Lab assay of single mutants.
Amino acid sequence: MGKSNSKLKPEVVEELTRKTYFTEKEVQQWYKGFIKDCPSGQLDAAGFQKIYKQFFPFGDPTKFATFVFNVFDENKDGRIEFSEFIQALSVTSRGTLDEKLRWAFKLYDLDNDGYITRNEMLDIVDAIYQMVGNTVELPEEENTPEKRVDRIFAMMDKNADGKLTLQEFQEGSKADPSIVQALSLYDGLV
């Protein structure tokens, strides 16, 4: 993909415009910024974590950033290329609610087996709590990752089998306004 070129080839721009919710001009602008920050044309896990640390200076986002990195890194080569970056950004910032929920499901399904187990969710929720640090005051019933996961599973795990399917996750998330709101945070920002 033209590693350190400051412009993408027209056919690449066209393809990314088809695969995302961005215009050709927006794709070019994002590429310019991506190459400025990642001259090699790729972003590794350490660089990704560094970006998260800028956004969450009062907590430790390392663990959460690693989980997000793994979802962005579609081809699992340990690096995020621009096409992976822009497609994930498109879903998280401008995707439909169902697209965002499928993306979030992939984030929580750490072993990619098609289910979110209690332990997988606990890993992610714990990482989120570490990331936000003491900057967020949580209600008593959610002031630990374990309590939050218990509440989520009580609401979403309809067949009580200890794991969530994509359908259970989507339906449960849509029924909880706070989850829908959290997924909409990026709307309109890009």
Rank of each mutant, 00 (worst) to 15 (best):
D123R: 02
Q49K: 03
N75L: 14
I124M: 11
Q181T: 09
E171T: 01
L8N: 14
A65P: 12
T66R: 04
G59E: 09
K9S: 00
E99V: 13
N112I: 03
L97E: 15
S173T: 07
F64H: 00
V68F: 05
Q28T: 12
G114K: 13
K100I: 08
F153I: 04
Y186V: 03
I35L: 03
S173H: 05
E15R: 11
T20N: 13
E26H: 15
E142C: 11
G78K: 10
K100S: 15
E120F: 01
Y108S: 05
E14F: 14
K19W: 14
Q181I: 04
E120Y: 00
F169S: 05
D77R: 14
N112V: 01
G172A: 00
Q29P: 14
K174R: 14
P139I: 10
Q170C: 00
T165G: 10
K53E: 08
D98L: 07
D157I: 03
R118K: 06
A88S: 09
D60F: 06
P39K: 00
P57I: 12
S6T: 05
K53V: 05
Y31N: 12
D150H: 05
F169A: 03
G59F: 10
T144M: 07
L110V: 05
G78M: 12
L107A: 03
L101V: 11
V12D: 14
K7Y: 03
F153G: 01
V68W: 12
L189Q: 12
L89I: 11
E81K: 08
V180N: 14
L122F: 09
G133E: 09
G2F: 04
Q28A: 10
F153Y: 13
L189W: 13
G2P: 02
L189M: 10
L183R: 11
F82Q: 12
S90P: 13
D73F: 08
A104W: 02
G114D: 07
R102E: 15
L8C: 09
E140D: 00
I152S: 03
C38L: 02
D73Y: 14
R151P: 04
Q54K: 08
P177F: 04
L89H: 14
G95E: 13
F34G: 04
M155G: 11
P61Y: 04
K50A: 07
V91W: 12
G59K: 06
R18N: 02
N70H: 10
M155I: 12
F67V: 09
N159L: 01
M121W: 07
Q28W: 13
K53I: 01
D98R: 12
V149S: 13
E171Q: 02
E140N: 02
I35R: 15
V136L: 06
Q29F: 13
D98V: 06
D37S: 12
E81C: 01
D77G: 09
W30Y: 02
S83Y: 07
N5S: 15
T23V: 05
S93L: 02
E142Q: 14
M155F: 11
W30C: 02
F34T: 13
K3L: 15
E171Y: 14
V190P: 13
V132S: 04
N134L: 13
Q42D: 02
Y21Q: 08
A127D: 04
P39W: 15
F67C: 05
L16V: 15
F82L: 14
L16W: 15
D150V: 10
T135R: 07
E140I: 06
N159Y: 03
I51Q: 07
L43D: 15
Q181V: 04
Y31T: 04
D187S: 08
F105I: 02
Y31I: 07
F105R: 04
V180S: 04
F105T: 01
F85L: 11
K32V: 07
D60K: 01
Q170H: 03
F34H: 06
S4P: 09
P57V: 04
F55L: 04
P139G: 03
I124C: 04
L110S: 08
N119S: 13
E11W: 10
K9G: 01
E141R: 09
D176E: 10
Y52H: 09
S184F: 09
K9Q: 15
T117K: 03
Y115D: 05
E11V: 15
E168L: 11
F105S: 07
L16R: 15
S90A: 11
D113S: 03
D113E: 04
M156S: 03
K63Q: 10
L8T: 02
M156A: 06
Q42H: 06
L138D: 04
Y129G: 14
E99C: 15
E140K: 15
K3V: 04
A127Y: 07
N75S: 11
Q167L: 15
V91Q: 12
K3Y: 03
T92E: 15
K106Y: 07
L166D: 07
S40C: 10
A104I: 03
I124P: 03
E15W: 02
T96P: 05
E171V: 05
G95T: 03
E74K: 13
K36H: 01
K53C: 02
A104P: 02
Y21R: 07
D150S: 08
L16S: 15
G33P: 02
D157W: 00
L138M: 00
Y186G: 03
P139R: 06
A175K: 04
G78H: 13
V27C: 15
V136F: 06
V149T: 01
P10W: 14
N143D: 09
V190T: 07
V91A: 08
P145F: 08
D60N: 08
V71I: 03
Q167P: 06
S90Y: 13
P57S: 03
M121A: 01
N5P: 14
Q167R: 09
D123Y: 01
Y108T: 10
V132T: 00
L138R: 06
E146F: 13
R151L: 12
V91G: 12
V27G: 15
T96W: 12
K3E: 05
D157A: 11
K147W: 07
V136D: 03
V180I: 02
L138P: 04
S173P: 14
D37R: 05
T23R: 15
N119T: 07
A160P: 05
E26Q: 13
I86T: 13
R102F: 15
E81I: 12
S173Y: 08
D123A: 11
V13R: 14
R102P: 01
E81Y: 09
G78V: 12
V71F: 05
D77F: 15
R79E: 13
E15L: 01
T17S: 07
K106H: 12
I86W: 00
I86L: 10
P145E: 14
T135A: 05
D150G: 08
T20S: 10
V180A: 10
V91Y: 13
M131L: 07
T96A: 09
L43W: 14
G47N: 07
K36N: 06
I80G: 13
F82D: 00
D176N: 07
F67T: 04
G162P: 01
Q130M: 14
E24D: 07
R79L: 02
E26G: 15
E137F: 11
